[in-house]
């Protein structure tokens, strides 16, 4: 069964459409933060390993 059938609150048509409309913007934010972390990781000093 789909979760939406079980939801007992009204999600609101406008709220769902807003999320759909902004999905691209949030996807961009997601990948931007990933790329930013990757780039920052390149300049970050590697941490000392304490394997012993």
């Amino acid at each position: 069964m789909c979760g939406f059938i079980l939801a007992y609150i009204d999600p609101g048509v406008g709220s769902m459409i807003l999320q759909g409309a902004l999905a691209g913007l949030f996807a961009l934010a997601f990948f931007y933060s990933r790329i930013k972390n990757w780039v920052l990781g390149l300049f970050r000093k590697p941490q000392d390993h304490k394997d012993d």
Binding site: G12, V13, G14, I17, G20, L22, F26, A27, A29
Partner: peptide
């Protein structure tokens, strides 16, 4: 948006609104 679609007959759970899990995570963040 709520005002705009207050009288809409569209189903809120319909297929028109989609959002990937990564977008959802970014929205939650």
């Amino acid at each position: 948006m709520q005002r705009r679609f207050a009288d809409s007959t569209r189903k809120s759970g319909g297929k028109s609104a989609t959002m990937s899990i990564n977008s959802l995570r970014a929205m939650l963040a």
